[in-house]
């Protein structure tokens, strides 16, 4: 049983959803991202997704694009990713990495998996890698004991959901709206429907991302998903207050969301 399996077993036993927070490594700086990720975990995130800043983030909206650009301008290097993950993991935090595929491909898929595992990372979320193209990652993740979190979308067919679930471990990432990342006022109706479709094919925990920014929305998503994934809202807090790295605001948001995932609301979709 992987450590992600254990994590979800624990949150299910508590009758609640897990809270997952995203921040790009190197944003606002490498040191800043260590502090902010630690604050997120400290204030209530069960798991952090450490993002890899990438030059061509086609799935991201303006908030995360700007953060990635900022991190790269500040000189972020891939080796910083492993050191940030190590900081989080050595303090007992759970971390997975979310990355576009090219940095992994260029680094060498097996080498990336080896270095991520030795830094204490638990797995990889791959927004532009589908299982159809993932032969070397399936092998490397097995070899190095990492979970592989693929995405499903409202446009996925039943066959693709089944195939993607079969290739995944740890949890499955349901992109709840068709679109790029970014906080939205309302959680899409498509989300509960997609999660229900996924559950027909797998017992894997299902995380829902894209759009959540408040405790109320977190509670709503927690009503039908196993994990509530929050990205742009955290990044915005840091961007708004680069003075103290946004730590205070990040803590406040994490606390609000953590309260939300413990207060499930019946799904309205």
């Amino acid at each position: 049983m992987s450590r992600l399996d254990q994590l979800f077993e624990a949150t299910r036993a508590e009758g609640r959803a897990a809270l997952v927070g995203y921040l790009p490594a190197g944003f606002p700086t490498v040191e800043g991202s260590r502090r902010v990720l630690s604050a997120m975990l400290d204030a209530g995130c069960d798991l952090v997704e450490v993002g890899v800043p990438y030059s061509d983030p086609v799935m991201d909206g303006p908030t995360i694009q700007a953060a990635a650009e900022g991190a790269l301008r500040n000189g972020f290097r891939l080796r910083d990713l492993f050191s940030v993950v190590e900081t989080v993991a050595s303090a007992g935090g759970h971390a997975v990495v979310m990355t576009y595929w090219n940095p992994v491909f260029r680094y060498g898929v097996d080498a990336f998996a080896r270095d991520l595992a030795s830094a204490g990372g638990l797995g990889l979320i791959t927004p532009d890698l589908i299982p159809d193209e993932a032969e070397d990652w399936l092998a490397a993740s097995t070899e190095h004991g990492l979970d592989r979190i693929f995405l499903v979308a409202p446009s996925s067919t039943e066959e693709r959901i089944a195939m993607t679930a079969a290739a995944s471990s740890g949890f499955l990432y349901a992109a709840s709206t068709m679109g790029v990342t970014g906080a939205r006022d309302a959680v899409s109706n498509a989300a509960p429907e997609l999660v229900a479709r996924v559950r027909a094919h797998t017992d894997l925990p299902v995380g829902v991302g894209l759009g959540v920014r408040s405790g109320a929305q977190a509670a709503e998503v927690a009503g039908f998903a196993d994990a509530v994934i929050v990205g742009s809202a955290f990044v915005s807090q840091v961007a708004r207050d680069p003075g103290d790295g946004g730590e205070a605001a990040v803590r406040a948001l994490a606390a609000e969301l953590a309260e939300g995932v413990r207060r499930r609301v019946a799904a309205t979709g």
Binding site: V58, M59, W101, N102, P127, D128, L129, I130, D132, E133, F150, L151, V152, A153, P154, S155, S156, T157, R160, T164, A175, M178
Partner: peptide, 12 residues
């Protein structure tokens, strides 16, 4: 070649 794309676009 191949398809290194988000799942959301695979159906299209």
């Amino acid at each position: 070649g191949g398809r290194f794309m988000p799942e959301a676009l695979i159906a299209a």
